[in-house]
Design a protein around this nucleic acid. Sequence first.
DNA 1: TTGTATGCGTTATCAA
DNA 2: TTGATAACGCATACAA
Lengths: 365, 365
Amino acid sequence: MGTPEVASAMKKTGRKRGLITMRDVAQATGFSPATVSIVLNNAPLARYIASTTRQRIEETAKRLGYRPNAMARFLRSKRSQSIGVILFDVTDPFCIPILRGIENALYPLAYLPIFADAHNQRDRFERYLEMLLERHVDGLIVVANWLFVDIDVLADLNKREIPAATIGWELPGKRVSSVMVDNEAGGRQALEHLYQSGHRKIAIIRGPKRLIDTAPRWRGIQKFAQSVKLEIDPALTLQLPDLFDATSSFEHGYRLTEEFLQTKKKFTALLAFDDLTALGAMRALAKAGISVPEQCSVTGFDDVAVSALAVPSLTTVRQPLEVMGSTAVGIVMDAIKAGQENRDWPVVSQKLHPELVIRDSTHNT
Amino acid sequence: MGTPEVASAMKKTGRKRGLITMRDVAQATGFSPATVSIVLNNAPLARYIASTTRQRIEETAKRLGYRPNAMARFLRSKRSQSIGVILFDVTDPFCIPILRGIENALYPLAYLPIFADAHNQRDRFERYLEMLLERHVDGLIVVANWLFVDIDVLADLNKREIPAATIGWELPGKRVSSVMVDNEAGGRQALEHLYQSGHRKIAIIRGPKRLIDTAPRWRGIQKFAQSVKLEIDPALTLQLPDLFDATSSFEHGYRLTEEFLQTKKKFTALLAFDDLTALGAMRALAKAGISVPEQCSVTGFDDVAVSALAVPSLTTVRQPLEVMGSTAVGIVMDAIKAGQENRDWPVVSQKLHPELVIRDSTHNT
DNA sequence: TTGTATGCGTTATCAA
DNA sequence: TTGATAACGCATACAA
């Protein structure tokens, strides 16, 4: 029934098939495009439109299969209803819950994320940033965890063009909003758990020097150790190297644990910088015939999805990754609203609390 | 130096800060917007532009910080340089390498993926589909693995509006392009590996009935069994239920393995429907004090990222997930080109070969 | 070699 | 209660 009319509507304007515009609806109903617009958007003026008119238009729009053209709308309104999301590496399990949190917070707002994955490469990050700016995304969320991106550009952006927020990383000087976990508290929680389980000889794998999380986690560890007069043996402390890709920490967790074992120093627990490091450590321990947790407890950090599936499941310090994603969305959306109302928006730095998740990889000594 | 000029350029047109348009560049150089457009896009006519002019324009554009407005360009050209990507669930590790593959293939084409996550919900899928259509994405890639989405809409779309491809799922009747792994070959490979390792008592966890992969994998298993006269004990065959979310197969792998153990039937190997099922099985075996692979070999399917990290690492049938993503991009891009040239585009069904990856969870008996 | 004019589909302002 | 018109920023056909 509808099809012939659609065809004729399209013929009249000579447009490519499948593209019904407001004008087509206007012609089909006999009203003007302006009226159609008002009705279909339920604009304020719609109050004054005769209800018969309204019905005619709505019904016709549906019958013709009219679909608003977001491009045109965006051009007019200067809002793209899109948020650019740049991840340092999708392949890193850390990113996934964050991405989910972002998407989930955007959904009810009818915003869509435009997805960019930097592959841990600086030039790729910059290229994507440029592409997103050309698309005039309304806001920007950057999930970063490594340093070699000089994200100073973001600070500028945030001040003069579009609202931005970073997750898992922050710019010195509070010039861009950020969402982070309280790393110091987390470091403390991990060590405290091991200590309270009776461990005194604890091997520690620290994070890579240049990673922003490394120092505060270590500080949390040291502070707790001091507070209970626990001695941290330097010979049982190693540091991950500064190389990055999604599984490098697994491999290095494995290697560093082998190093620990070679020293013949006794330890009854191992505190790893993050979950993948911990899993690597667990493999090395298994290979050496050391059972976890009976002979050695292991803790991680992040509570990445795999940690719950490992055998034994991993005790870890949970980052509220999904919440971090949605929090960033909240910050950016507030800023967008401010921008629309021509107000300045604040730089906000959220620090969320980590949570100790006790599973099967730790054990009383 | 540049800033005051920027300010004045903006003042003249009264536009909001940070938005330099072609007209601004035109005014600043004294040329017309058309010339500016031709130069900055390196359009065919750029050949005829005086090189001094060209330089002036390019230099000025840079100095003013001109950035093309993709919205406007898209509206004009009717191409959004975007691909809609709908995943059934980002949280499922299966999706991640596919997403990476899609993004990676799109990057050199200056296309950007618009990200949608259906959360395994049909209404969410439909809503996202509608949003993507309104944005006039040039193409659509749907990563689906479950049935409750009646993706017949896709067939229509593909024929009349935008090129589409599915990954990991296919519509009956070849009405939409799809990229799949050869499940039958994969099922065969898994069983063949166990058989050749000497296993004869093999427990099997089949996939959920409604999942499209289930039947062909099972067929591959049966055919191989017949070919070597291996008897498959029905008492050692269980099926995953039809409930879906990212970790349900892990849990059910665990439970079904416990069921196997309760029957007291002996088996020296377990062939699981997918990797998460296998990991669940491994946990159940560990809990029962059965060591993998010494007392029981285990195989998975997919080669999801965690499988390499598990202890012991999992032998599995690898789906070339990243390649599947890039293949889908290839199909869709070809169709887009065809559409632009007003040709019809074919429906293509790619079936990629799985690859057996032997790790530590299997062992000769 | 460059400029003018027009239109992509919407929406907002103003007029009727 | 509705319609005419202009403009968003860009790219093209055509004119000069």
